Simulated assay, not measured.
Amino acid sequence: MVSVLFVCLGNICRSPMAEAVLRHKIAERGLTRQITVDSAGTGNWHIGKAPHEGTRRILDANGISYENMAARIVRSSDFEQFDYIVCMDQSNGANVRKVAGGEEAELLFFMDLLPHEKLREVPDPYFTGNFEQVYELINAGCDVLLERIIHEQVE
């Protein structure tokens, strides 16, 4: 079983959107028994809350479920549990490394999946309000990530 953890600041916008999108793509490919996906935040403001209404709206518009998703914070045990820890921006990565403590966390930055894009971080729609832009980036990046996982991990 391959596992992916998406990380953003509050775990209500970017990372749950990525979790839902990748889960949807995994289900479409019939790989739900081979790949699991979760998301977490580096801040504790929204623990237990559903994704942001902007995230829910864009996922609904694209027929993607976010059922039973609730914000949580990154835990040190995540470094043992997940094969891929994908951070939405450099600040999230720095905070994740602090949680890792002595563990050398291998992180993947989401925009590294899309090297042709000028943006190097996924903009936070909590502040920008541009959920459509974030969805387009996440949708494209999840395609790349899924192909990478299939190539590297799934038999």
Results as ranks from 00 to 15, higher is better:
57 R>V: 01
132 E>H: 07
13 C>S: 07
104 E>I: 15
148 R>H: 03
133 Q>M: 11
117 E>R: 12
38 D>L: 03
71 A>G: 03
41 G>N: 08
90 Q>T: 10
61 A>Y: 13
63 G>K: 09
29 R>Q: 13
125 P>W: 02
100 A>F: 01
35 I>W: 12
77 S>R: 11
134 V>P: 09
113 L>Q: 05
136 E>V: 04
135 Y>A: 08
109 F>T: 05
136 E>D: 07
82 F>D: 05
33 R>C: 11
8 C>F: 00
34 Q>T: 09
151 H>G: 13
97 R>A: 10
70 A>N: 13
124 D>P: 09
94 A>P: 01
75 R>H: 06
151 H>D: 15
154 V>H: 07
75 R>T: 00
63 G>Y: 04
37 V>N: 07
27 A>S: 14
38 D>N: 11
92 N>I: 05
73 I>R: 08
147 E>W: 06
66 Y>L: 10
126 Y>A: 01
90 Q>P: 04
94 A>C: 00
141 G>I: 09
96 V>M: 00
143 D>Q: 14
54 G>N: 15
99 V>E: 08
106 E>N: 12
12 I>S: 01
11 N>E: 08
154 V>L: 14
145 L>W: 09
124 D>R: 12
35 I>M: 12
129 G>Y: 04
30 G>Q: 01
97 R>K: 12
52 H>F: 11
65 S>D: 11
15 S>T: 00
103 E>K: 13
107 L>G: 05
103 E>N: 14
83 D>A: 15
121 E>P: 05
56 R>W: 01
132 E>N: 06
145 L>Y: 03
39 S>Q: 15
13 C>P: 06
44 N>L: 04
86 V>C: 02
110 F>N: 03
5 L>T: 01
26 I>N: 03
104 E>W: 07
146 L>W: 01
69 M>A: 11
133 Q>E: 10
136 E>C: 06
114 L>V: 00
103 E>A: 13
29 R>N: 07
21 V>G: 07
8 C>D: 05
69 M>K: 12
18 A>T: 11
81 Q>T: 14
34 Q>R: 11
22 L>P: 06
78 D>I: 00
53 E>F: 13
13 C>L: 12
152 E>F: 02
117 E>M: 13
38 D>Q: 09
124 D>E: 11
3 S>R: 15
108 L>V: 04
77 S>Q: 10
89 D>W: 11
